[in-house]
Amino acid sequence: MTSTTTYVPYDPDLERPKPDEDTYIDKIVDSLRGNNERAYRKTKRGLRDAHAKSHGILRGTLEVHDDLDDELAQGLFAHGGRRFDIITRLSSTSGAIRSDQMRGVRGLGIKVLGVEGERALPEDTATTQDFIMVTHRDFLFADAEAYYKRGMPTAWALARLSDPALKIGSELLAGVDKCLLRPIGRPLPESLAVFVRPNTHILGDTFYSSAPLRYGEYVARMAFVPSSPEVRALAGVRVADGTGVNAFQDMVVDFFSCHSAEYELRVQLCASSDRRWIEDATFDWPEEVSPHRTVATVRFDQQDPYTPERRAYGDDVLSFNSWRGLDAHRPLGSINRLKRKVYDASSQFRHQVNNAPMSEPGCPGDLPE
């Protein structure tokens, strides 16, 4: 079966970088390296410059649905019924280790094991496919230039602000939004609004790729959506004040001590060759033009997702990079070209100073119990 909607076929020429993009990317890499070094001097540990704090490391499976429409049966999802083992890391996107009472964007890294095929990068010899998602539907900055000019000042400040200062800032922003901006119909900029939105249960959140990737013969964005009743019931549930600095870790551990969980992996296919769909990561792909459609089910059984051994493996050994995977799922657009250099530089630094091996898991058993 095929859809009646016309989707844009993948073509390398869909990517149209600005002439000075590499200059901005190099400046960002240098600046973030400074943040890495500052964090190491402070904590004597190498931290990720984003997604520094983990809340749980999960072992699960990803099962491709049968009878997918032709345009959905692509790449990793080409063969219905195929089941892959996965390792998943839940995190906060901040590059600092903060209290879970702080509002912000949460992250999800999915590592699919046993994936054979042509790789996006020639030097990549792994057999894993990484998908990296966040709780913000669209990225906060359009491209590398916007990230350098507006995102880096925020990153600089967040690397230095204390939790109490950040909390006061969030409360002030919330007051400005409620009392001044909303009455006149002017929303906060999205890069600030994420510090105002309520803190919700991470297992009930929906996660998004927030930037496009190749999807076999097409181009797509992805979403990770709660589907089993137990996690659907957690959608929008507020994190109560006073639940502690590690509230998310406690919630995840408590949940999986007595529950399993299922999520749907959905894709939204690109339906326009307009440059914004690929190069502007803030551009919202309209659902009425191209809705998200389910291609796979992700399942997690009962487990202890944050034993000391798992935490050490997740923090020191595991790395996630959207460029680690099949050429059929090559990341696209300026923000993803930025991530290629940023993620690699951060991982190299972290593993080096922590004297930790850079190795990819080959089987589920590589993740400690």
Rank of each mutant, 00 (worst) to 15 (best):
A155P: 06
A126D: 13
S92Q: 05
G109T: 10
R98I: 03
I168C: 08
L108Q: 12
D124C: 10
P122W: 01
R98L: 10
L140R: 01
A165P: 12
L166R: 11
S94F: 11
F139R: 04
G169C: 07
Y148H: 13
E118N: 09
L158H: 07
L113Q: 10
G114F: 06
A126G: 13
K167I: 08
A142F: 01
M152A: 09
E116Q: 11
P153M: 08
I97C: 03
P122R: 10
S91H: 08
L90F: 12
M152T: 12
Y147R: 07
A146F: 00
S162V: 10
L90S: 12
S94D: 13
G151E: 02
A126T: 15
L108T: 06
G95K: 00
S91D: 15
I132G: 00
R106L: 13
T154Y: 02
K167E: 14
W156A: 15
D143R: 06
L140K: 03
I168A: 12
D124M: 07
R106V: 00
A165V: 06
D130L: 00
T93K: 08
R119Y: 01
A159Y: 00
P122M: 05
F141L: 13
L166N: 11
G114R: 06
A142Y: 03
D138T: 14
S94G: 05
E123V: 01
